[in-house]
Amino acid sequence: MHYRVIPPTPALSNYLECFWTLQSRSTPSLLSPERILPDGCTEIVFNLAASFKRYHCKNTIEVQPQSLFVGQMRRFAMIEPTGEVQLFGIRFRPAGAYVFTHFPLAEMTDKIIDLDLVWNRFSRELAEKIHLAHSTQERIRLAEKALLARLDRRQDGDKTIEGAINTIIARDGLVAIDRLQKKLQLSSRQLERKFQERVGLSPKFFCRILRLQKVFKAAARHRPLPWSFIAAECGYFDQAHFIHDFKAFSGQTPAMYFSEAHEMSEYFTRKNRLSDFYNTTA
């Protein structure tokens, strides 16, 4: 598979992390379900080729719409392409989607839904143009024009939350929330409400996701995988705590997960993570 990341125009860089594309011409016989893990971002995804299937609990299977809004995830999603893969994605910064959705992001947490249910006719018109476009650059131009038209600057400018997010990202989630709220001069309830509204997660859960992503960075540097060392490096109390937390996100132990091939999902974990797009200091 070929994965590509493209930065947005400066006018949208406060809200968008990147545009991305993922392409493959694999035949269905070579494809299998993969686990997509939480990464702390919301996304819009346009599927320009064969449909994807999503596996739910109790062995139910859903054929996904061709245009998706992906809310914050608190647990893995199991998906499988049915043929050629050609995806065009818009990845928002953790609090970036709020100024375009016009509703609290907590309403979309753990949901992967048809974009029409979020933006109605606006999304259908955009999806049609994206599908008819002849190049990635043309799709980016169309998406940027549509997002700038929908941008609600009245919802912009909560520097308190942006500062909190930047601190959490810079420290890979290893942040004491009580100290953070005191630094920001917010009560725990105020910080929780602002995060749920603009990010779609509690600050503590957002930290857990960033710590999970740190595991993939650490695992990429160490072979064989010394789990006790990785647990300590990523701020877990002990190896048992690390395994329990990893399994809560992925449905597998670390050893099980890393023993399998993840040709598609690795692009959303090991590479181009949040801290690569933020110019932050601890």
Rank of each mutant, 00 (worst) to 15 (best):
K145L: 08
D114K: 07
P94D: 01
D110G: 06
F92Q: 04
A143F: 04
I140Y: 05
W119N: 02
R121D: 14
Y98F: 15
T109M: 11
A97M: 05
S135M: 04
K129L: 13
A133K: 01
A149N: 14
F103H: 12
R93M: 11
T109S: 14
A146M: 09
F103E: 14
V99R: 06
I61E: 03
L147Y: 06
T101R: 06
Q137M: 02
D114C: 09
T60N: 09
R139K: 15
H56A: 14
R124D: 08
F88S: 09
S123D: 04
W119G: 01
L87M: 10
K111H: 09
L68Q: 13
R93V: 03
S67L: 04
F92I: 02
K111S: 10
R141F: 07
Q137L: 00
G96P: 08
D110I: 02
V70T: 09
Q137N: 05
E80V: 03
T60V: 12
G71C: 11
L87F: 10
R121A: 13
A97F: 05
K145C: 06
N120I: 02
M73E: 14
F122W: 12
S135D: 04
A127T: 11
K129N: 13
G71D: 11
G83H: 07
E84D: 10
R74Y: 01
F122S: 14
M108Y: 12
A149R: 15
E128F: 07
H134P: 01
R141Y: 06
G89M: 04
L105E: 15
F88L: 09
K111M: 08
F76D: 05
D116R: 01
A97I: 03
E107M: 12
A146I: 03
I130Y: 05
L87I: 07
T136V: 15
K58R: 13
V118N: 07
L105R: 12
E107G: 00
L68F: 12
S135T: 07
I79R: 15
E80Y: 07
K58N: 13
E107S: 10
T82Q: 14
P94C: 06
K129Y: 11
R124C: 00
I79F: 13
G89F: 02
E138R: 05
K145Q: 14
F88D: 11
L117D: 11
L142K: 08
F76T: 12
G89W: 03
Q72N: 14
I140M: 11
A77W: 10
N59T: 04
A106T: 07
K58G: 03
L68H: 10
R93G: 02
R139P: 01
I140F: 06
A106R: 15
H56I: 05
V70F: 11
S135L: 03
G89Q: 05
H131G: 06
F88P: 10
H102V: 00
K58M: 09
L115V: 00
R74D: 02
Q72C: 13
P65N: 04
L117P: 00
E144Q: 08
A95G: 02
F100L: 04
K58W: 10
M78C: 13
L68S: 07
V63N: 01
L68E: 10
